[in-house]
Design a binder for these strands. Sequence first.
DNA 1: TAGTCTATATATAAGTG
DNA 2: TCACTTATATATAGACT
Lengths: 141, 141
Amino acid sequence: MGRQKIEIKKIEKKNNLQVTFSKRRTGLFKKAAQLSALCGAEVAVIVMSPAKNVLGAVKEREKTVEESKEVSGGGFRWDEPIDELGLDELEQYMASLEVLKKKVRTRADEIAMASASSLNFFAPGGIAMDQNGFDFDRRFF
Amino acid sequence: MGRQKIEIKKIEKKNNLQVTFSKRRTGLFKKAAQLSALCGAEVAVIVMSPAKNVLGAVKEREKTVEESKEVSGGGFRWDEPIDELGLDELEQYMASLEVLKKKVRTRADEIAMASASSLNFFAPGGIAMDQNGFDFDRRFF
DNA sequence: TAGTCTATATATAAGTG
DNA sequence: TCACTTATATATAGACT
């Protein structure tokens, strides 16, 4: 919606992605607030930021290690200190992610149960968090 | 965003409200889907419809009863059959609403706990469901 | 990284069938 | 209530700061 039309597919340039994410997240919250104000509807919006993509971080890390291995010809050392992302920290993240994922799924079912009698239900895409980070914003309008 | 600019405040005309709600809900879901596709962010949007506003229905009902009382001069009869909304049904709705409300709050806390280490948290408005119905759409992108 | 600018794309208010 | 149309309001892509 600007100087040029863009395809609705993953933005490659990291810089552009961050800018677009920030702008569109603001826009989404604004639209949600308007819907609420105009129609008296309750609206909740949850956005998980793609910025702190720990799985991506791991891949980057592995790539770096692989590259240095190739360059140096040395062995792959899992016991070497990982400076940017500790394994323990990573494992915690992974565990948290699993917990969160399951809880969100459970919560979805609970809401469906609690309001079963008058519920219109749509969840076409399912929940897939594997490619995402943990930072998120929640807004209730 | 159309032929005429409108103020962002509750739409009075019931008909316009329903049309605007439907259109803007569609627009909100679309924006959420785009944000997800463009940026790889996970987005959840929950919209509670204002259409089946049971509390509003009760108030309407009470008003009608009050008016007929004034006109007829008769007593206020709680035992008279309520045609459009039974008390039992209303109580069920009220109970469901409370459960849902508490569960949403609990869920918010749970998510906060699960992701505490890397969480950016925003919930400026709190949750207020008292003026709303139960029908809702959920979308995950 | 966040704010401003501006041309353009998109959403949508009203109206119509 | 839905689908379509059209004029207009709003969101935003890209550039710059």
